[in-house]
Write a protein that binds this DNA or RNA. Structure first.
Lengths: 186, 186
DNA sequence: TAGACTATGTTAACTTAGTCAACATTAATG
DNA sequence: CATTAATGTTGACTAAGTTAACATAGTCTA
């Protein structure tokens, strides 16, 4: 309980992650985070330059988590399902990662790296899956899959509208692999 | 130049639209909007309950714009391209509409209506396009298209990453219809 | 080991932004 | 014309990000 904390930076990130994960990034603010860590509001600024740095770090960890998890996946559809489940399991972290255009990723190389790794994963897996396909076709396909996976998460999360809340979305959610087969390799 | 303005509410919305469209919603704030309209900061509150109401109105207009435009489209792929182009032509309005989970649409029925209309459009068009398909398959397909269209806009906008900024994205952007044919009806 | 340099925390305060309350003025209505 | 409703303004409050000045702890070297 000294004046200096054990590993404050890590603590702050974890607290912020927890709040963001539970309540969305909008509910993460310096004063709240600091209070939970039992330090002054501004202690944060000894470890980060600005709040955006914290955001970037949360995003980076999100990608890291996705990238780790996918090592266990073998089928391609299972792969897509893995991404979708991440979006459903960590909805607010997911928002931060993909619903966000205002952060300049090039300012955060570590983040950019994880982000690229995530997409590369799709591409590699797809190459294995359809080895005979022309290089370009494979890449276009990968883009399409990436795109539709992310779009789908959005739909699955917004069950409020007339059309989406139909049986269909529930069916899709419970049959992700089959859905991906259907739509990707029809 | 009286104390009362001609149609202040409309003016405020238009100013906000312009700022948002040019610089993103983050750069829209009451003081700036009020200044451009040459009224006091708080005049806004005579016409809206809170800032979110303004956001909802911009979103609603975005959907309206999309829904109007699609009446001119006939081919199905052209239809998808129409959505994608909207995302590219009005990137920040698009962000507001689709990169946003924190607004409870059910609080804004007019907005919800336009939003539903947008999705219904996809569904109807698809039914026309593949009339022989089973009802459910059509709906699933519509969801997939909706999802991938939105995901694609995100990719097309983030040309910063290694993988995305490849030729592929440029090719897709210039050949939206072909891309949609390729990936949707392969 | 003393002194000095660096890292890490704290306090107070500044700034921007959303919003409200009290008051002022114009418009509308009986 | 008098009252009321609508619309604007001023001033102020609050929340939140951030900075500057100061304080303490840890480290490293003479």
């Amino acid at each position: 309980m000294g004046y200096h904390k054990e590993n404050l930076k890590e603590q702050l990130v974890e607290i912020a992650w927890d709040i963001c994960n539970a309540e969305s990034w909008q509910n993460v603010n310096m004063r709240k985070v600091a209070k939970k860590a039992k330090v002054s509001t501004t202690a944060f600024y000894r470890h980060f330059k600005k709040k955006d740095d914290l955001k970037a770090e949360l995003m980076r960890r999100g990608y890291e988590l996705i990238n780790e998890g996918r090592k266990d996946v073998d089928t391609f559809a299972g792969y897509g399902a893995h991404y979708i489940r991440f979006g459903l399991d960590y909805p607010f972290i997911y928002d931060l990662m993909f619903g966000n255009t205002d952060l300049d990723m090039s300012l955060y190389p570590d983040l950019e790296e994880q982000s690229n790794a995530a997409f590369d994963g799709v591409l590699e897996a797809l190459k294995d899956f359809m080895p005979d396909s022309a290089e370009k076709d494979t890449r276009i396909k990968a883009i399409n899959i990436w795109a539709s996976v992310h779009g789908l998460v959005g739909l699955l999360r917004n069950g409020d509208s007339h059309v989406y809340e139909s049986e269909d979305l529930k069916w899709i959610e419970n049959n992700l692999e089959e859905y991906l087969q259907m739509t990707t390799f029809s």
